[in-house]
Amino acid sequence: MRDQLDVVPDAILAGRAADGDTAAFESLARRYGPHMRAAARRLTGSYADADDVVQEVLVQAWQQLDTLREPAAVKGWLLRLTGSRSIDLLRRRRNHASLAAADGDAPADTVSPEAGPEAAAVAGAGLESLKAALSALPEEQRRCWILKEINGQSYEEIARTLNISPASVRGRLARARTTLVREMEDWR
């Protein structure tokens, strides 16, 4: 029956997990873990940090699943938790290590070692220029953009995650997009 869990809808898994079914919870974790890891890595800049974030989120999710009003919304909830935990980690890090890195807090692949220069030049050229432009954005704008485009969060949710107003989210997102468009079109 275990493999059947992999085909059932989120709401079923979330309901079971809230009842204490660890197998259903692990199935949810496998289903959305890659998205959570991708989002956390884009925010924090490394897989090591991302995996810490994903683990923390899963612990929190297990403890709080029974408070989730709408079990079908579990994916968005996990990604919101992932966003918040990633931001927490970045804040902790800045508080502790602001001496170490004077400037240039641009995490995530400014250069991407896994993609060779030719690969970048052909298939992923647009992608590489977006990554470069993204990592050059001011930190607050970058976070807004990632929470929107990678985590899929709403303005209100981003506002809560970053502890700013929805209007600020709107403004930062627009400035981030303006810069990104400019950078990418310059590159063309």
Partner: peptide, 23 residues
């Protein structure tokens, strides 16, 4: 321009998701 950026963002997400591996 914004739509092209959104499409590029979608590509970035797809590529990040693939790079993150499977569950």
């Amino acid at each position: 321009s914004l739509r092209r950026l959104a499409a590029a963002g979608g590509e970035l997400f797809a590529s990040d998701l693939a790079a993150a591996g499977s569950g």
